[in-house]
Nucleic acid binder design. Structure first.
Ligand SMILES: [Zn+2]
Length: 276
DNA sequence: CACCTTTCCTGTGCGC
DNA sequence: TGCGCACAGGAAAGGT
């Protein structure tokens, strides 16, 4: 599932293939709920003439194609992928496509239909997205300040994209392991030392995962891969996620998996003691 | 406002 | 080999 590092890998792929500077002629929907607004008219009006791609950015898990006069906010959710195609025929599970001037298209492949492509013409209508941990403004002080208002379990808090953006289930479990914090630990009861360690754990986890071009679990193509189908390698560096029953890489205790607020939650019961 | 639950979706993998 | 079902989970929407 694409989280911050996977979306960053896709962004780098798009930049490497010189998408920036090219023009989008139209956007076609194959699944009516994938595009927002859902009305075809709004898209046809916006793309009455081609729109040049000014920049390719990312905030949290959102991929941003900044166009002249508006921005496409692309969210891959669980099963979304982008593929470059020359064919006119829709691909399997293709939910939408961006038609690029010159004949190529960027296909939005999304079996589970949770992904979205959102057209925003006015900047103040942009989705509200919390601070991204790769931004320079994400400092230790910034995290401490945000955490000071937290009243819920740390895992729940970290998954809230309006607080910090980009961490999903994999990287939250990984960051909490590195910090030695139990996922259900209340934010309000974290020591200052643990909060500072959490800061370094979040930044370290994300930096390493970006370096590895994300996590590609499983062997089927249902899982994450970049625009050229290349898989990431961070799955070989996971401490807890999907490692239930296997020995902790720090202390050899078997990793546990529980269900917490509807999420599979992986942790080492010895390195991440619950609050007593 | 802060937090919690439900809902949306379909391919995969398991038990029988 | 096939059937039924739990599971995967991000975020919007609605409730407390
Ligand atoms: Zn351990």
């Amino acid at each position: 599932m694409p989280e911050l590092p996977e979306v960053e890998a896709i962004r780098q792929d798009l930049i490497a293939m010189d998408l920036k500077g090219q023009e989008i002629e139209s956007v076609i929907a194959f699944n009516e709920r994938t595009l927002s607004p859902t009305e075809k008219m709004a898209w046809d009006v916006f793309f009455q003439s081609p729109r040049r791609i000014i920049s390719i950015e990312r905030k949290g898990k959102w991929l941003l194609l900044k166009l002249a006069g508006g921005t496409l906010f692309i969210h891959l959710r669980m099963s979304g992928k982008l593929r470059l195609t020359e064919s006119r025929r829709p691909m399997t599970h293709e939910r939408a496509r961006l038609v690029i001037k010159g004949g190529a298209s960027l296909s939005f492949i999304d079996p589970r239909k949770f992904g979205r492509i959102v057209l925003i013409e006015k900047e103040d209508a942009s989705p509200s997205i919390g601070i991204d941990p790769t931004e320079g403004t994400f400092t230790e002080e910034a995290l401490l300040s945000l955490l000071s208002k937290g009243q819920t379990a740390i895992k729940t808090w970290l998954l809230d994209q309006k607080k910090i953006s980009g961490l999903g289930n994999i990287y939250v479990d990984e960051a909490l392991f590195r910090a030695g914090i139990h996922p259900e630990h209340p934010v309000s009861r974290l020591s200052l030392a643990k909060k500072k360690l959490l800061y370094r754990s979040i930044v370290g986890t994300i930096q390493e995962a970006i370096k590895h071009r994300g996590t590609s679990l499983g062997t089927t193509n249902q899982n994450y891969s970049g625009i050229h189908k290349a898989r990431g390698s961070h799955q070989d560096h996971l401490f807890v996620y999907s490692r239930q029953g296997k020995p902790c890489k720090k202390c050899r205790t078997p990793i546990e998996k529980v269900r917490f607020r509807g999420r599979g939650t992986h942790f080492c019961p010895s390195c991440q003691k619950p609050v007593h």
